[in-house]
């Protein structure tokens, strides 16, 4: 990562903080405050973030990085590690990196992440993903990713048909449970993985904030 990137990221970070604060009112406030704090904290250390993600699973000396850099090959994998290790989630991981949410997904949580597989991103109109990955679209990208995250660990059997659940961007998603099949805003949950800090539910469509 070059120094120019570092400067730009720093500026973006402070901007994100303000935007998020304006959305917090009354909605799972403590969680989002904590996430905001983490985002602010990560401003100080993102310069080697990409390298850190790759180092997360490798042995070595202690690092000064964020949660994503903790060396631990004994504990259950966290949500970040599950996503990074899945070939089906390379687009999502790219988006998480661009949104600066790498460290957050490795914190204590708990989180429920609806994780669109690569094919889900492919269903979006051509150029959508590339557009969102542009630095100037970072806030939009974060908003979309936050729409996929619940603060709380929902295993599949906790979902109830028709239940609307608040998500991290302040909006809500609606759960459907019919004939044993679970949907979120109409997207199918096609698999579920327990992580150390919550649950990852694989979905076949990208959820768009309503």
């Amino acid at each position: 990562m070059n120094p120019e990137n570092n400067i730009r990221y720093s500026r973006d970070c402070s901007g994100v903080d303000i935007q998020q604060k304006s959305r917090f009112n009354g909605l799972i406030f403590p969680v989002l405050t904590m996430m905001a704090i983490l985002v602010i904290a990560s401003c100080n250390q993102h310069q080697n973030q990409e390298a850190n993600v790759e180092q997360a699973a490798t042995a070595g000396a202690p690092l000064d990085g964020g949660s994503a850099t903790i060396q631990d090959d004994v504990s259950m994998r966290n949500i970040l590690q599950i996503a990074v290790s899945s070939a089906d989630h390379s687009t999502l991981v790219t988006a998480v990196k661009a949104a600066d949410y790498v460290d957050v997904l490795a914190t204590a949580g708990p989180f429920t992440v609806f994780a669109p597989v690569n094919a889900a991103f492919d269903k979006l109109p051509a150029g959508t993903v590339e557009g969102l990955l542009k630095p100037e679209k970072k806030a939009d990208l974060q908003n979309i990713l936050e729409y996929h995250v619940i603060a709380g660990a929902y295993k599949p059997e906790y979902f109830r048909d028709g239940k609307a659940i608040g998500v991290a961007n302040g909006g809500r998603v609606t759960i459907g449970v019919k004939d044993g099949k679970i949907t979120v805003n109409g997207a199918n949950i096609i698999g579920s993985v327990q992580g150390s800090n919550g649950w990852v539910h694989l979905i076949d469509q990208v959820l768009l904030p309503q």
């Binding site: 403590p30 969680v31 904590m34 996430m35 204590a108 949580g109 708990p110 603060a151 709380g152 800090n197």
Partner: peptide, 14 residues
């Protein structure tokens, strides 16, 4: 009688 987790564990510790 209430009971609770007394070690701050997560965002939903409370």
């Amino acid at each position: 009688v209430p009971f609770y987790c007394s070690d701050f564990c997560s965002a939903l510790h409370q």
